[in-house]
């Protein structure tokens, strides 16, 4: 899983890079517009250590934001299943809030919370929260009658059991949504850093943009890609373990 993800990423990255080089040499563009391989390599050697720490910093915030979003989405998703009206209200509210571009909302967040960790965390959580919420509300509101019927008719149904049934029945969907939203958390954190934070790879990208240094940005993209791939692999592995543990007991199959 890990190797496949990484080599797929390498393929995409180097294909992108090759296309850039084709444009550069095809149109005879200077290194200022598109840096050449020697400059990218030397920039990589020079900044990759520092950038790696920045990416890890960003990744840490993204993971925290992601966890926060999952917890929030689970909570609201559970509330949303209480009545059809609450569920539909939450969905409409989520669609509306999601429609606001984060670059417009972020300055307000930074004014209120400053440019520290809390703002980055909140923006990261916000960006991945709504897709999670919509999926969670949908999953938790959707009955599984062929399982729930027994518990309903024997009056054993509790809200916890209901959530457990619906989550279990949709575990593949939940894991897919959680893994998918991890990328959004990373994007959210980078956007937050780009807009106003003073740390993380988004901040470094902004500085590189000030300096029109595409080589630095390409190095940053490479490291972001690797770290995001690793995080996705980790999430997929956790999802796989959950499925294994929950759905089929180890050594207990008959």
């Amino acid at each position: 899983m890990l190797y496949r993800r990484l080599y797929q990423f390498f393929m995409i990255y180097f294909l992108g890079l090759a296309s850039l080089m084709a444009i550069k040499y095809g149109l005879q563009l200077s290194d200022y517009v598109i840096p050449g391989p020697p400059e990218i390599a030397s920039t990589g050697l020079r900044v990759s250590g520092r950038y790696l720490l920045n990416v890890l910093n960003t990744l840490a915030v993204a993971i925290l934001g992601h966890i926060l979003a999952i917890v929030l989405a689970t909570g609201i998703g559970i509330i949303g299943r209480l009545t059809a009206w609450i569920g539909s209200f939450i969905r409409v509210a989520a669609y509306n809030i999601q429609a606001y571009p984060i670059v417009a909302v972020a300055p307000i967040i930074f004014i209120l919370l400053g440019d520290g960790l809390s703002s980055r965390l909140l923006i990261a959580a916000m960006i991945c929260y709504f897709p999670l919420l919509l999926s969670f509300v949908g999953i938790f509101s959707e009955p599984v009658p062929e399982i729930e019927h027994f518990f309903e008719s024997t009056r054993r149904m509790t809200w916890r059991l209901q959530i457990k049934i619906r989550a279990f029945e949709n575990i593949h969907k939940l894991i897919t949504v959680v893994v998918g939203s991890a990328t959004l958390a990373m994007v959210g954190t980078i956007v937050a850093e780009f807009i106003a934070a003073n740390a993380g790879i988004g901040y470094s990208i902004r500085i590189a943009l000030y300096q029109s240094d595409l080589a630095k940005i390409l190095v940053a993209l490479f490291l972001i890609g690797i770290c995001t791939s690793l995080y996705l692999v980790l999430l997929e592995w956790i999802g796989y373990r959950i499925r294994r543990r929950w759905a089929i007991p180890e050594g207990g199959l008959k």
Binding site: L27, S30, Y32, V33, E39, S212
Partner: peptide, 28 residues
Amino acid sequence: IKELELGRSQFGVASADQVIRAVSKGAH
């Protein structure tokens, strides 16, 4: 400066550091 090189603009306004940086990277 990038637009000049890509042929999208014929004239432009740039700060001196942009010009110097671009020239140092081979822009004409």
